[in-house]
Design a protein around this nucleic acid. Structure first.
Lengths: 183, 183
DNA sequence: CGACTCATGTAAGCTGTTACATGATTTA
DNA sequence: TAAATCATGTAACAGCTTACATGAGTCG
């Protein structure tokens, strides 16, 4: 039950059309929630039907025509309710950790290359977040709102850093495994 | 496409019945993959139909009767194939980070108590992992298999540590926010 | 007008969650 | 023998992914 609320947040920060939302989810919003355009259009329809958002006035709705949405008071209220409500942490599911555990049973053949690939991807992602941090959160200038947003970005930064460290350590361990070829 | 492989790993490590698997997923397997008993039974049926596992001989299949499974060679081969195959990292989705971002827009009213609750949960989880580490991975005794399993556990430990640090920092920030009551 | 891009959607399938059902075994 | 627990399931639904469809505008 989080996607509709992610969309409400995005629309409160800036009214947008479906495609614009998709692009924002691919970029900045992506470090705490991801969604495809199909999910977004479906959810925009539901949110409108529930009276949480509406299309901006002075826009004729037609297929293939851009349609921008804004949040209505009921939508803001729903978001506030959801934000304050207690929620249990969800269980984690990480295929890479699973594969590492599998490697302990069926052998490490083939997995090392993919670890290196993941390491590179996380390094690139970290660099991107660092750019965002430099651009959007210059030192000692955070407002209250910015401080919270900065905190969220920092979670993204720290998680990428964790993965880089863990993958580096994993590759080190591999190098020390018996039968390892340093190709 | 990871649940069937998680089950294959668990069954290779030790042949088990559905309920035993469920318990193992709740405990040690849970720090890299979680599953409910409904998912597990459904998946065991599929894996058997595909010829990847079979019920242990000398067991009459009947409703309400315990039924243990073991992995067949085809299942082990499938697991090796999957482990070596390249996979993209999945997008993250974290409702707590989402709520923090929402708090920047609709206010922090009510969220602080839940942050404290999450902090306590992560601290308990970390303590559990530390117990497992002490029990299963005594210093300087790791075999090759153990080193990989230890590595996976360490990811769990480090992720819990990350969350504890992040939540602590978040609560500190809250304390400094204007209008904050130190109740 | 043909190809391309922008923009919005539909449909099918898979995974995971929640609630419920049912038989077998133990124990009070 | 009634209740609790062990053990295996069924059913309905919600959420996400993948592939495809369609119209509108733009550029050569």
């Amino acid at each position: 039950m989080s996607l509709p609320h992610a969309i409400l947040i995005a629309l409160l920060e800036k009214p947008s059309s479906g495609l614009e939302l998709t692009r924002r989810f691919d970029k900045s919003i992506g470090y705490f929630w991801s969604a495809t355009h199909q999910q977004i259009y479906r959810e925009l329809g539901k949110l409108e039907a529930e009276g949480f958002i509406r299309t901006l006035p002075s826009q004729q709705p037609a297929r293939g025509q851009k349609k921008s949405y804004e949040v209505l008071p009921a939508g803001r209220a729903e978001l506030a309710r959801w934000t304050a409500a207690s929620q249990d942490p969800r269980p984690h599911r990480d295929p890479l950790l699973l594969r590492m555990r599998a490697a302990a049973v069926v052998g490490t053949e083939g997995i090392e290359a993919d670890l290196r690939r993941h390491l590179a991807l996380h390094q690139r992602q970290l660099a991107e977040y660092e750019e965002i941090e430099e651009r959007d959160f210059p030192p000692d200038k955070d407002s209250s709102q910015d401080r919270l947003r900065h905190l969220v970005l920092r979670a993204g930064l720290d998680l990428e850093t964790f993965w880089i460290q863990w993958l580096t350590r994993a590759l080190d361990e591999f190098a020390e495994l018996p039968g390892h070829e340093t190709a």
